Every structure is written in C-alpha cells, then in structure tokens.
Computed example of a mutant assay.
Amino acid sequence: MQPGTLYGIGVGPGAPDLLTLRAVSTLARVDVVFAAASSRNDYSVALDIARPHLRHDVTIERLDFPMTRDQSVLTAAWKANADAVEAVLRTGRNAAFLTLGDPLIYSTFGYLLRTLTALAPDLPVEVIPGVTSYQAAAAKTRTILCESGENLLLLAGIQDAARLDTALTRADNAVILKAYRNFSSIRTMLASHEATRDTVFVSRLGMEGEVVARDLHAAPEHPHYLSLLLVTDRKHGNPEHTAESTSDAEADETAD
C-alpha cells in the first residue's frame, strides 16, 4: 500500500484567519490531525486555532510531548510519537501535524521530523510554513524588525540573562521568544539597554488575554508561556510611545 503523507502545518500565532491558504486547503484534505500538547495538559492551543478549518469527520489524535530536560524521557516520547504517526501513514491515510507559528522554528515538529526520518525514511513529509509570532507581533505594533544591512537575531528566553546580554551586543535587532521563564532577569538586563534600544513585550497575541506593552514595567511579573520581546535599535523609533495592554490571563504551559 502506498503510504500517506505527513504535513507539518504551521497554524500561525493565534488567530484562525492567519493560516495560509495552503494550510487551510491541506487541512480540508487530510484524514488525521495530530495535535501536540504538553503531557501536563489535556488541550492543544494549535488545535484550537485550526479547528474552524477542520473537516467535521477528521480523526484527531493527541501526541504528548513531556516538558522535561531528561533526555531519556524525551527520546522515548519522540519515538512513541513517531511510531504513532508511522502507523497512520502506513494505512495510506494522509495526516497533518499542527504546530504554533512555523513548524521549523522552536517547534515540537522538529523533534518528530528528525525521529520519523530516522525510523522510516521512505515516508513522505511536506512542511507548510506558518506566520511566526514575532512577525505577527511586529505587524501588530508596527515595529520594523530589520532594514538595509541590519541583522535580526532570534533568541530563546530560556537562556540566562547574561548570555542574552552578550548576544544582543552582536545584534542590530533581536527577538526573544519563550520570554516567560526568566522574565524578571531579562527585564532587568534590558533596562541597561534603554538608552539605545526600544523593547516591546507581546503575550498571547490574537488570543483571549492578549497583552501588548511598550513599557516593560507595564508587562506582567509572571508572563504567559506564549510571550516574546521585540528588541530594536532606538534609531527606528516607535510609531506609538504610549503603553497599551489588556488584561493578563495566566494559563498552563503547552508544548505547542
């Protein structure tokens, strides 16, 4: 039997109408949808975003991705998830794996892709890119991410503040994703760059509990998992200088 195809689909940052036309048309054709979630939770944010575009009769299967740094636990989970996907594809059914933003940027899909390719290299896989959270945040706040000969550095906020500080000295502009875990120390570090940098905090963009703050002091003390920072050279300036925010809604972490 000819195996089915796995589609890694980026569903964007939160608003269902930010899925690409290709993503929507693919979701209308697949037989199975794999929704990644933290093993701590029973929901998937990516699935909620994509739900308006799913067939009413599509099969939904949850894949658990544990929130741990124990490599043995992670490897076992990746193998189990790859086995589950392979089992579906071997029946000839096409499947979609949903992920927030883009499938190849800080995504659980990367772990699945690498593991599945090693276990079953004959299985066809296609990746459908998605709008990233920092692209949507820049659009929301009219923040210029880079221009002319400038560079843009993508950073993970799970790094310690000292390492992020060093990285920023080599960047014209930067995006700090996953800014929730070390936010207090990151905020303190960024305060030392206030003379030369503009920073915008964005959380849960396009979702209930969205927060946009141009003043870091207006950002919540304990941000949601889906939080990021846009750090740009001060010469760009901001089109707006008044802090704007909506209520902060805390929620459990998700592995999407």
Rank of each mutant, 00 (worst) to 15 (best):
T143S: 01
V73A: 15
L229N: 03
R93P: 12
Y111A: 13
V85Q: 06
A15I: 13
Q71Y: 09
R234L: 05
T196F: 03
E61M: 14
A76H: 09
V58M: 04
L145Q: 02
D256Q: 11
G157Q: 00
M207D: 05
D252N: 14
L18N: 08
L63F: 05
D122W: 13
A118W: 04
D198G: 10
A213S: 15
L145K: 00
E240N: 15
R93N: 12
N182Y: 03
A95R: 05
L89T: 08
R51W: 03
L21N: 11
S133G: 09
A255W: 08
S25C: 07
E221C: 09
A156P: 12
L74M: 10
S38H: 05
V45C: 11
R163E: 11
E61Y: 04
T169C: 06
G8S: 05
T141C: 07
V131N: 03
Y180L: 03
P129D: 01
E210T: 04
E86K: 14
I105T: 09
I186E: 00
V33C: 08
Y180G: 08
A136E: 02
T132Q: 01
T143I: 02
L98F: 07
V11Q: 11
A87V: 13
P220W: 02
V30M: 08
D248R: 11
Q135P: 01
E253C: 13
V73Q: 12
H56P: 14
D31Q: 15
A84D: 12
T232W: 01
T20I: 04
T246N: 15
V175T: 00
H53P: 08
E253K: 13
V45T: 14
V175Y: 00
I9A: 12
C146Q: 13
L116Q: 04
